[in-house]
């Protein structure tokens, strides 16, 4: 298979990480595309949950927001927002939380709140929404985002969602019993936390991507795993599924890009 974009590779690599029996809390944007590609390919029975309260949803097109009507129409059930956060998320019923990030550090801590000082921000971002408790209550966290020096930074300005803190056993020290970030999928590579330090380490480069390209778009000194592999290229089925989903989405939303 030739001829795919780095964005498509990112979405497909992220989709592959999900299992058929996962119960997945879906963040909007890149995670939403990946989760639905998984559902439309190898994981038809996956339970997708959006924070608007839709459980087991199967949208024909990607939603523009977490509360689009189609999420409700295709869901197994739609619950209230307090029930969503109390019984289903806090109750420990969700195996994977899939998040995007504006800023991410090497330990999987996420900032979507402010750039600069909180009280005198340079840029005021939308904030955490459900993410702080998604990050602490889901069994594990997958993160997907495009690489850039503005996005992958040495130090984040604000801990919107706690990943592995300063590394090592930081989660245990806070009393967190969930695994936290276990996977980062970018447009260039697949990263996993080092078992000891918890620093994200590149384990697989997407086809045609060099170590230099990964380093040039990352704000910290990148570590590469000893057994570095190459991510298998998208299959025809994966690519067709993703492109058809994007085309249906564009048609349904009048050409409006999904954020």
């Amino acid at each position: 298979m030739t001829g795919f974009t780095s964005d498509e590779m990112m979405t497909i690599a992220a989709a592959r990480a999900l299992k058929n029996d996962d119960v997945c809390f879906v963040g909007i944007g890149a995670p939403s595309a990946a989760c639905n590609v998984a559902r439309l390919t190898h994981a038809p029975d996956i339970t997708l949950i959006y924070e608007s309260g839709t459980i087991g949803t199967a949208p024909e097109v990607l939603p523009l927001s977490i509360g689009d009507g189609e999420l409700c129409e295709t869901a197994v059930t739609t619950v209230s927002v307090p029930e969503m956060f109390r019984y289903w998320l806090q109750g420990g019923r969700i195996s994977v939380g899939f998040l995007g990030a504006a800023q991410l550090d090497r330990f999987g801590n996420i900032n979507t709140t402010v750039i600069g000082d909180y009280h005198q921000p340079k840029v005021r971002l939308p904030g955490g929404g459900g993410a702080p408790e998604i990050a602490s209550s889901c069994g594990e966290i997958f993160i997907t985002m495009k690489q850039s020096k503005r996005g992958l930074v040495d130090k984040i300005d604000f801990f919107t969602s706690f990943g592995h803190g300063e590394g090592g056993h930081a989660r245990e020290r806070l009393g967190l019993r969930t695994k936290g970030p276990t996977l980062l999928i970018t447009d260039l590579a697949i990263w996993k936390p080092d078992p000891e330090t918890k620093e994200f380490t590149v384990t697989s480069l997407h086809p045609g991507v060099t170590r230099e390209a990964v380093q040039e778009t990352c704000g910290w000194q990148v570590r590469f795993a000893a057994g570095l592999t190459e991510t298998p290229a998208p299959t025809a089925l994966e690519l067709d599924t993703l492109r058809a989903l994007k085309a249906r989405t564009a048609a349904a939303h009048g050409g409006q890009e999904v954020a």
């Binding site: 307090p82 109390r86 801590n109 909180y118 702080p132 801990f159 919107t160 989660r171």
Partner: peptide
């Protein structure tokens, strides 16, 4: 906020939940 609204509806002064671990907020 979901917990705080629910506590308001329930006539409680505050909401208690498992959250904000490690969060700068």
């Amino acid at each position: 906020m979901a917990n705080a609204y629910e506590a308001g509806a329930a006539g409680l002064p505050c909401a208690v939940f498992r959250g904000y671990k490690g969060a700068s907020l």
